[in-house]
C-alpha cells in the first residue's frame, strides 16, 4: 500500500496482523490480516461496529492483550523496530514512552486516591523524561495548559473532575512522555456533544502542534470524519476500506462503508431516508466463507461467497471488495 500523504518513512507500519482469542467455542478471529501505515504527524481513524476488532487492534499495538489473546501473525513496526517479538520488559519502554493510549473509560485510567497532577508527574519520572520533580511538575503544568486544563487543577483528585476534565487529564497523561504515536480509543463516547466538540478540537490542536501521529478509534463516523486525515473501515476483524477521509466519506467504495454512511442520521441538509442494513455481524468464532460481509451485502455474488476479495487500488485508497462501488452510476452488478 503506497502512502501519498507521508513523504518520509511511516512512523508505524502494521503488516498482516492477525489476532485470535481462545474461547470455549474455539479460537475467535478478532483481527485478520490487517495492514496499514501511519505517517508522521498523520491521524488515522478506525471505524466499525462493536466487535469488529478495532479495539483489539489498539490492544495489539500496545501489547495489552488479555491472557487468552494470541497474535497469530504479523509485524508491528514502530520506527522500523518490530514490537511483536519484544518481551514484556522491553515493551514497557515503548508503551507510554513511544506509544501512548487514551482509553474510553477515563475514570478507570486515573487512580482515585492520588492527586491528578501527581499521577502525571509519576508517569514522567518513571520514564526518565524529566529528571527533577520540579522539572516534571513544570512539564505537567505545560501539558495541562495544552489540553485546556487550569494547571491549578493538578492538586485536585479525580472525583473532583467532570467527565470532560478527566478525559483531558488522561490525554495529558498520554502526552507526558512525548510519544510519537497516540492511540485514542473512543475517548469521547461517554461525553455530551458540546464537551465532545471542545475535546476533539483540543486533541486535534495538540496533535498538530506536536506533529504527533494518532490512531483514532470510534464507532461514530461523524467524529472520525472531523479529526482524521485517513480512515480505515473495519468489518468482522478485517480492514475493508482505507483511504483519505474526505475521499472515503465522499464516495465510499465498499458497500459496508456506504451502508454506514446511509444509516447515519444527519442534522444538516436534506433529510435523507435512513437505510437499514439487514442481519447481524457474523459470529467471529465461525465466520462465513469468502467476504464476511456477503450475507448482508446487496451486491453479493458467487465469488463473494467463496473467496475473500483482493484489494482494489484506486490512487491513494483501496478496498477489499469484488464489486467496489464507483463514483459513476454503475454500481456493482
Amino acid at each position: 500500500m503506497p502512502m501519498t500523504t507521508a513523504d518520509t518513512e511511516p512512523v508505524l507500519k502494521v503488516v498482516d496482523l492477525s489476532l485470535s482469542y481462545l474461547t470455549r467455542q474455539g479460537p475467535l478471529q478478532a483481527v485478520q490480516s490487517v495492514s496499514f501505515e501511519l505517517g508522521r504527524g498523520q491521524s488515522l481513524g478506525l471505524v466499525g461496529e462493536s466487535g469488529c476488532g478495532k479495539t483489539s487492534i489498539a490492544n495489539c499495538l500496545m501489547r495489552l492483550l488479555p491472557d487468552n489473546g494470541r497474535l497469530t501473525s504479523g509485524q508491528i513496526l514502530l520506527d522500523g523496530q518490530d514490537l511483536v517479538p519484544l518481551s514484556e520488559e522491553e515493551m514497557r519502554h515503548f508503551r507510554w514512552g513511544q506509544m501512548a493510549m487514551v482509553f474510553q473509560a477515563a475514570m478507570n485510567a486515573l487512580d482515585p486516591v492520588y492527586r491528578v497532577g501527581q499521577q502525571v508527574v509519576e508517569a514522567i519520572e518513571a520514564h526518565g523524561v524529566e529528571v527533577t520533580t520540579a522539572g516534571a511538575r513544570e512539564r505537567v503544568a505545560r501539558l495541562f495548559r495544552m489540553v485546556g486544563l487550569d494547571p491549578q487543577l493538578m492538586e485536585r483528585y479525580p472525583h473532583e473532575f467532570s467527565g470532560g476534565m478527566r478525559q483531558r487529564a488522561v490525554i495529558a497523561m498520554a502526552l507526558a512522555c512525548d510519544p510519537s504515536v497516540i492511540i485514542a480509543d473512543e475517548p469521547t463516547t461517554a461525553l455530551d456533544v458540546i464537551v465532545q466538540d471542545r475535546l476533539l478540537r483540543e486533541l486535534k490542536g495538540v496533535q498538530r502542534e506536536l506533529s504527533m501521529s494518532m490512531i483514532y478509534i470510534s464507532h461514530d463516523i461523524g467524529v472520525v470524519a472531523e479529526v482524521t486525515d485517513r480512515i480505515g473501515v473495519m468489518y468482522a476483524g478485517r480492514l475493508v476500506e482505507l483511504g483519505d477521509t474526505a475521499d472515503v466519506f465522499g464516495a465510499p467504495m465498499h458497500p459496508y462503508t456506504a451502508a454506514l454512511m446511509s444509516s447515519f442520521p444527519s442534522i444538516s441538509g436534506e433529510k435523507h431516508e435512513l437505510e437499514t442494513l439487514p442481519g447481524e455481524p457474523p459470529n467471529l468464532a465461525n465466520p462465513p466463507a469468502g467476504c464476511p460481509f456477503h450475507p448482508r451485502c446487496a451486491y453479493a455474488t458467487e465469488e463473494c461467497r467463496e473467496e475473500f476479495p483482493a484489494q482494489v487500488q484506486r490512487g491513494s485508497r483501496w478496498t477489499a471488495c469484488w464489486h467496489p462501488l464507483t463514483d459513476m452510476a454503475g454500481v456493482g452488478q
Binding site: V193, I194, D197, L200, G222, F249, G269
Partner: peptide, 13 residues
C-alpha cells in the same frame, strides 16, 4: 450551541 456541536461525516460540511 447543541446544533453546532454535532459532528458530521459529510466532508462538505
Amino acid at each position: 450551541a447543541l446544533l453546532s456541536a454535532v459532528p458530521s461525516p459529510d466532508p462538505m460540511r
